[in-house]
Design a protein around this nucleic acid. Structure first.
Lengths: 150, 150
DNA sequence: TAAATTTAATAAGCATGCTTATTATATGTA
DNA sequence: TACATATAATAAGCATGCTTATTAAATTTA
């Protein structure tokens, strides 16, 4: 609408829409006290065992330091366990806990409902195209991140 | 690809793609030391005068506290000025500074180039559809944020 | 006008996210 | 084996972003 918006369309849309989604998730799941990031991390652990934090960081597309902080919080809440890696004393082996599975069982339907509501009025074809465009955007942006190491 | 991804498709895509864009912007503009948020805020001030922080927060879709922090950083860097509002002693009137305009003149072409590169291989029609889907997603998510107050 | 309520900005506390540095441990090479 | 290098995790510092509380000033109302 304004000239300004034109100038930062993609960044504005991605960031703003992402923020709206994050806020909606927070509202819906307030009583569980998990952020979208903690939820996403737990999901990755659900069907995996002995994952190191380094490996997990790759799975959730975050850096190791950030991943470590989120893991720490989930451990304090009792939703995952950090066991020593017998073959590498620097590393942990992460496991989701029973409490973690239980909270996921509550959160997953909420996340799915939110997902459904977010896509309301959007056809399957449109979703597919959206997905395909997102892939290309990610590829293009990923190349920019990788190629230009200072 | 995995079951996990299915479960948080939208949140994952929005957040991850947004992060890729933000990192690319940071890489390209490293020497100016402005974040995407600071850039977006300055853009909003470019063609406006006497904007309060409250008003500005609405323009950039952020809360007042966060907006205040970003304004503070831009003021320290000399890219905007905070003058007292003569009609309301609680409020400021914000103005972009000459230095702010100069840094925008450097940043805008970089942001535009990044935008072009991000959309590479995506047709004008696809962009339009993407935009339209984003609008609907935002509408749907916005309703969720507004309607369910506690 | 006086008291109650609202409002603009800020502060404090916490979570994510990035970068750089540190520590302890592994691995590779001489 | 000894030394150099690489690696997993953490710490510290800073920015965004949210929530709740505070302060001073504005507005409403009684």
């Amino acid at each position: 609408m304004t000239t300004q918006k034109q100038l930062q369309t993609l960044g504005y849309w991605l960031h703003h829409t992402s923020a709206l989604h994050k806020r909606a998730f927070a509202t819906e799941t307030k009583k569980f006290g998990l952020t979208t990031e903690q939820y996403g991390l737990l999901l990755q652990l659900r069907d995996r065992e002995k994952v190191s934090q380094k490996k997990l960081a790759g799975l959730i597309h975050k850096d190791q330091a950030t991943t470590g902080k989120i893991v720490e919080k989930l451990e304090v809440k009792g939703f995952l366990k950090r066991l020593p890696d017998p073959s590498d004393r620097r590393a942990f082996q992460l496991y989701i806990s029973d409490n973690g599975r239980e909270v996921l069982n509550e959160l997953i339907p909420i996340a799915e409902t939110l997902e459904t509501q977010a896509w309301e009025g959007i056809t399957a074809e449109e979703m597919q195209l959206f997905e395909s465009i997102m892939h290309r955007l990610q590829d293009n942006l990923y190349k920019k991140n990788v190629n230009e190491d200072e």
